[in-house]
């Protein structure tokens, strides 16, 4: 009895050890790729580099531990204005672009799903913007939005898109929606394709209008895919950097995002404050992701979990 129990326990702990051994490479990689940069950034954010000069004009070297000073400095005085402006821009861009992308992306997916002729061409052409690197598409849009550009000749007015103001925000939003709506479209299309056709047939037999079919069948059944797409887009948009940076330029209040502030600090060699900004952005992104998964039930890795619970 005891021997059997011991053998059983030995077997489980042996299996556990084997499992740990087999998993350890993954943990090491995760630790190096995810853990180390996070910890390093956190550590960096509580130090500050010397900027004082000695009598002969040389920088006094070395960084010193400043505790949470880098964080409190963000919320004080002029940097607070800059931070909240960047926070506002980041949030505004995220909300508006993702909302537009959902509407346009769903429409694109429906077109791609129903296209019978030239199906391949329609799908490929809708995906082209997504395939263009962001910095390149930002350059393209800058060319469109320059003073003598295409945008101004189409509307027949001279709007200086890249100067401070709402027009700059509009330009960024338009360029971002153009670029990433296809991504939402692609994920939603994948969701559409697993909806069985008999559901629609049954609805048609019951006399449901196409509009009703969309609201009652398509949307609920495509919701899991759509939520994942929205989650990805939100996380992506919160980190927006290259598009406003290239399209409008750095240090422009109207479009400065949190990533741009962090970058700007880092390129001024203030790595401590830069790390603090990056950490705050990280927390913001993490909290948003959590809220999404918990409240809206975005199902990123949940399919398997669900099955396991059953």
């Amino acid at each position: 009895m005891t021997a059997v129990a011991r053998r059983a326990r030995g077997a489980t702990s042996g299996a556990g050890r084997l499992a740990a051994a087999l998993l350890s490479p993954t943990f090491v990689v995760l630790g190096l790729v995810v853990g180390y940069p996070l910890v390093a950034a956190l550590r960096e954010s509580v130090f500050r580099e010397g900027t004082d000069l000695d009598e002969s004009g040389f920088v006094v070297e070395g960084s010193r531990f400043v505790g949470v000073d880098n964080y409190t400095a963000i919320f004080a005085g002029e940097s607070a204005v800059r931070f909240w402006n960047a926070f506002g821009n980041t949030t505004l861009f995220t909300v508006i672009t993702v909302a537009l992308e959902v509407v346009i992306g769903v429409a694109m997916a429906l077109v791609m799903h129903h296209a019978i002729r030239w199906r391949g061409i329609v799908r490929a052409s809708i995906l082209v913007p997504w395939a263009v690197p962001t910095a390149v598409s930002a350059l393209l849009w800058r060319w469109i939005f320059q003073a003598d550009g295409v945008a101004n000749s189409i509307i027949g007015q001279q709007i200086l898109w890249t100067t401070e103001g709402w027009q700059a925000k509009f330009a960024v939003i338009l360029a971002d929606v153009w670029k990433t709506a296809p991504f939402v479209g692609l994920l939603v299309l994948a969701g559409l394709q697993i909806i069985p056709n008999d559901v629609y047939e049954a609805a048609r037999v019951d006399g449901a209008s196409p509009w009703r079919q969309f609201w009652r069948i398509t949307l609920p059944l495509v919701k899991p895919a759509l939520l994942v797409a929205v989650l990805f887009r939100v996380l992506d948009a919160l980190r927006m950097f290259d598009l406003p940076f290239v399209l409008i330029g750095s240090r422009k209040e109207s479009v400065e995002t949190l990533s741009m502030v962090a970058f700007d600090e880092a390129s001024s060699l203030r790595f401590g404050p830069a790390a603090a900004y990056a950490t705050i952005l990280f927390v913001y992104v993490a909290v948003t992701a959590l809220v999404f998964v918990r409240l809206l039930g975005a199902d990123v890795i949940g399919a398997a979990r669900e099955r396991a619970r059953k």
Binding site: Y36, P37, A40, A41, R43, E44, S63, R239, F241, S259, A262, F263, A266, F271, A274, A275, A278
Partner: peptide, 14 residues
């Protein structure tokens, strides 16, 4: 992402 890389590289450098 780019920011994180820069910062971590700077940390390593430091």
């Amino acid at each position: 992402m780019g920011v994180r890389t820069t910062v971590s590289r700077a940390t390593a450098a430091l």
